[in-house]
């Protein structure tokens, strides 16, 4: 299964009114490291304003998520296996590392979990 394109986040998130509403108090730059690939995701009051793919020179960001690529591949499966279905499941396994200022991350935890899960392929219907 191909890895979802992080650059599609603005389209996926901004089309979801409830998700944007949930994140309406968050304006921040989230750094996402997937293996060797780095992304800077600019969030403006819950909308994804911009996603840039690295490499970067002296990037500034608010908080960061870093995870092995194959662990996120499991997370993004339509039905993720046990231990891979939530960001905190990855944290518990030691696959996910958090960095930076974690206050906005924890204050918007459900929003950020759902932003990351929005890249998940829809479940196939029988």
């Amino acid at each position: 299964m191909p890895r979802p394109d992080v650059l599609s986040l603005p389209e996926l998130v901004n089309a979801n009114e409830r998700l944007v509403h949930r994140g309406r108090f968050l304006t921040a730059v989230m750094r996402l490291d997937i293996g060797a690939d780095a992304y800077l995701i600019s969030i403006d009051r819950g909308r994804i304003a911009e996603v840039r793919k690295g490499p970067f020179v002296m990037p500034s960001w608010t908080f960061g998520l870093s995870c092995r690529a194959d662990a996120l591949d499991q997370f993004w499966k339509p039905l993720p296996p046990p231990g891979f279905h939530d960001l905190f499941a990855l944290l518990r396994r030691g696959e996910l590392t958090l960095s930076g200022n974690l206050q906005p991350f924890m204050a918007n935890l459900l929003y950020i979990k759902d932003v990351m899960a929005s890249l998940r392929s829809p479940k196939e219907t029988a």
């Binding site: 279905h85 905190f88 935890l109 979990k113």
Partner: peptide, 9 residues
């Protein structure tokens, strides 16, 4: 909100 986010996962 944060307790809910922890529990939801």
């Amino acid at each position: 909100e944060v307790c809910a986010a922890i529990a939801a996962g």
